[in-house]
């Protein structure tokens, strides 16, 4: 396999590795790297197949990126129609399958193009450089027919100009000094996002406790009762449950931050069931209050 097929081999390898890694339960970072590569691979290959070397620089990257985004959109629709669940196996199958299919097509096209060039050489067609390649034939290395215009499909503009949008026409090489400055810019920008994330994590939020007492469906004979502590630290509570005004249960709870306590409470629907939550040491004023039952209103403040 020559250098011109190296991208085909690399993308095929990515497809296989991503599937193997997913099947083997590879660690998150490995899946992230392979997943991003697999996500990009079909776009790159479709870009090669559809526009090949007729695009350059920014335009080429843009077309390939857009095609990479098209694949899950239209492919996902097909999977959905076929009844394939859109979970990891389905997406992996779609992206890997698309990659391998495009690899095969590109490989075959490049081989055919190489064979065509060999035939022309054998019949002594004069090869005077890239300008001698007729429109509709292939540019060496691109594997795409119809690349007769080197870098430009638009007349009136020099090829070098058309390659310019992001392409290799800087006229002014990027020096090492500039690269260092760009690297600094990236580091500073990353620091900015880190600062914002840290600020968001440390933002002081009002702390709270959730208390609930609820039938999970109308007419249910049990109530879901629970307490969740979101006070930012371990908190001690007393929970008092009453039915028809009579205390039927008391619980002293100490919950860590983010912890939940739950119970199922029998419920006939004939009497009011109410729960008062006290935050210790204040056992006089209910901190939270809920009530379910017929007759008068729920109460509370």
């Amino acid at each position: 396999m020559g250098r011109s097929q190296a991208d085909v081999a690399a993308t095929a390898l990515v497809a296989v590795l991503a599937c193997v890694a997913a099947a083997a339960g590879a660690p998150g970072p490995v899946m992230t790297v392979l997943g991003v590569a697999l996500f990009a691979a079909p776009g790159y290959l479709l870009g090669q197949l559809l526009t090949g070397s007729r695009t350059a620089g920014l335009e080429r990257v843009a077309v390939m990126t857009a095609l990479a985004l098209v694949v899950p959109i239209l492919g996902g629709l097909l999977l959905n129609v076929a009844g394939v669940p859109l979970h990891r196996p389905g997406w992996l199958g779609l992206l890997a399958g698309m990659t391998l299919a495009a690899d095969t097509a590109l490989f075959a096209r490049r081989r055919a193009a190489r064979a065509g060039r060999a035939d022309r050489t054998a019949t002594r067609v004069p090869a005077t450089g890239i300008q001698a390649v007729p429109a509709g034939s292939a540019v060496p290395g691109s594997g795409v027919p119809g690349s007769g215009v080197p870098g430009s499909a638009v007349p009136g503009l020099p090829a070098a100009d058309l390659a310019a949008p992001g392409g290799p026409r800087p006229g002014r090489p990027t020096t090492g000094w500039h690269l260092v400055v760009f690297a600094v810019a990236i580091v500073v920008a990353a620091a900015a996002v880190g600062l914002a994330a840290t600020g968001a994590a440390r933002q002081s939020q009002a702390h709270f406790t959730q208390l609930w007492l609820s039938p999970q469906r109308p007419g249910a004979h049990t109530l879901s009762m629970g307490v969740t502590n979101d006070e930012g630290s371990a908190t001690s509570y007393r929970l008092v449950l009453r039915r028809g005004g009579q205390v039927i249960g008391t619980w002293n709870l100490t919950l860590g931050d983010g912890r939940t306590w739950q119970r199922q409470v029998p419920y006939t629907g004939k009497q009011v069931v109410a729960a008062g939550l006290y935050r210790q040491p204040d056992l006089t004023h209910p901190y939270r209050y809920v009530s379910v039952g017929p007759g008068s209103g729920a109460g509370g403040s």
Binding site: T209, S296, A298
Partner: peptide, 26 residues
């Protein structure tokens, strides 16, 4: 805002301090 506490058949099913949820279905 507090009137739902007094409405017959309305259940006060959730209390987080600032946010309270009432069930009107009864």
């Amino acid at each position: 805002l507090a009137k739902f506490n007094r409405l017959p058949g309305v259940a006060r099913i959730y209390d987080a301090g600032n946010i309270v949820v009432y069930d009107l279905r009864g």
